[in-house]
């Protein structure tokens, strides 16, 4: 069997394209359950805040549960061949939580809406960065989370927690289902 240079180039291009898409799908399969879980946590946390700002303290146990579950889901992926991506996702979330606590300690926000908006913007940034460096769908998710957060913060301040519970929480769940659809 003889293969011409043009055929060889076309075959190598096919191999690269499929390999890149295979990596994307792998990343989405790991990210989807994590995204759905954080969507549910957002619904509960922001929902509690919408009932009364005093209930905002539920974020402490919710964040701890979310962080632990994220590490669990990432470690579960690590048992397969997805280890590199899985552990990266786990460490990324860990770094974000540490940054979130440190930034609040330094900046000391006073408004409840600031407490609510900041983690959402952080999540938006992390998804945008993941999208730039790995799989493109995360860019769309990052832009959507940032846009919903800013619209709610500036245009719907009195209903911000309720907005975030429905739009942000629901959006993350839908985003996770969207990642699963590929």
């Amino acid at each position: 069997m003889t293969i011409s240079p043009d055929q060889a180039a076309a075959a190598l291009k096919d191999i690269e394209t499929v390999a890149a898409r295979s990596n994307d799908l792998k990343s989405y399969a790991i990210g989807a359950p994590i995204l759905i879980m954080w969507g549910i946590i957002c619904m509960m946390g922001y929902g509690a805040g919408a009932i009364s700002p005093a209930y905002g303290v539920v974020w402490f146990p919710l964040s701890a549960i979310g962080a632990a579950a994220t590490f669990f889901l990432a470690r579960r992926a690590k048992r397969g061949a997805d280890g590199r991506i899985g552990s990266r996702i786990g460490w990324t979330w860990g770094a974000l939580i540490v940054f979130y606590v440190a930034a609040f300690a330094v900046l000391r926000p006073t408004e409840p809406n600031q407490f609510a908006a900041f983690p959402a913007l952080l999540v938006a940034l992390s998804y945008a960065l993941m999208g730039i460096w790995t799989s493109r769908r995360y860019i769309v998710l990052g832009i959507a989370v940032a846009a919903f957060t800013l619209v709610g913060y500036f245009a719907l301040a009195p209903f911000f927690s309720l907005w975030m519970a429905v739009v942000m929480g629901g959006g993350l769940v839908l985003g996770g289902l969207w990642l699963k659809q590929v």
Binding site: D14, I15, V18, A19, R21, S22
Partner: peptide
């Protein structure tokens, strides 16, 4: 070729 590329990447 595509099947083998996908499986080789997924490992």
């Amino acid at each position: 070729l595509k099947i083998m590329s996908a499986l080789n990447t997924a490992n």
